[in-house]
């Protein structure tokens, strides 16, 4: 059974269609990436999964149970953590407070402290800035904070929206090796990326969205080798 199963998902923002018909499954333990151009509906799909927008039709099942209509905080409790587009950090709070809020649903202080230590080992830059307001962090540091914070919920599946956006190439490499490491330690990942090259390199499976529909889907390595993907998303043809 798939960990997360999205079927015939359709989302409207008022009269505007966000996504028309999106279906895919994420298996336990894998990285699945949604790629596609601007406006293809990648972020909207994530927002529908985490309950930030309500789909107009279609289904989202997590561990075989429908989560459509649940409040976002209930979906977090169910085991889905979403690091949103734009990072969604609280710039008026310190880095430490942001991390603590990541573990808001948990009450096991000792384990939270251990997990926080792990996050700080992964991102040593955050350790230096623990007591600074998160608004003073650079873009890359904010992205590290967003990912670290999402991990502190101990999710079964982590939704990452454009983790490479606006980052220097070297930092993009770092972020992607962290994503691979998080996955290796057992967290399933649903990754939305515009950087198709990096995303296909790290993912097991991939789904290509075009104007709110699934255009192609399959193994990431197969898609990376396909002429259509090469031409449209990898910049060589």
């Amino acid at each position: 059974m798939a960990l997360l199963k999205v079927a015939n998902l359709c989302v409207h923002y008022g009269a505007i269609q966000g996504i028309a018909d999106v279906s895919f499954s994420v298996e336990q333990g894998e990285i699945l990436t949604l790629i596609g151009s601007n406006g293809a509906g990648k972020s909207t799909t994530l927002r529908a999964v985490s309950g930030m927008v309500r789909p107009s039709s279609g289904s989202v099942e997590f561990k075989g149970r429908s989560i459509v209509g649940l409040q976002p905080h209930q979906i977090v409790k169910a085991g889905i953590s979403h690091a949103p587009e734009g990072r969604g950090i609280f710039s008026n709070l310190t880095v430490a407070e942001n991390l603590r809020l990541g573990a808001y649903i948990r009450h096991d202080s000792a384990a939270i402290a251990d997990d926080t230590e792990k996050v700080l080992t992964t991102f040593p830059r955050l350790k230096e800035r623990m007591w600074q307001n998160a608004g003073t962090l650079s873009g890359g540091e904010q992205q590290m904070l967003a990912i670290g914070r999402a991990l502190l919920a101990r999710p079964q599946i982590l939704l990452l929206d454009e983790p490479s956006l606006g980052l220097a190439p070297q930092l993009v490499q770092t972020i992607f090796s962290v994503i691979r490491e998080i996955n290796r330690q057992g967290t399933t990942i649903l990754l939305v990326e515009q950087n198709a090259h990096m995303a296909l390199g790290v993912a097991h499976h991939a789904v290509v969205l075009e104007v709110g529909r699934v255009a192609m889907a399959g193994k990431a390595s197969d898609l990376a080798a396909s002429d259509a993907v090469k031409k449209a998303y990898l910049g060589h043809g």
Binding site: Q71, H73, G88, S91
Partner: peptide, 16 residues
């Protein structure tokens, strides 16, 4: 304070 900064992002932390 998180809710006062952003309601949708606070909800993503599992805050009711």
């Amino acid at each position: 304070r998180a809710v006062s900064h952003s309601i949708p992002n606070a909800a993503l932390m599992g805050i009711n």
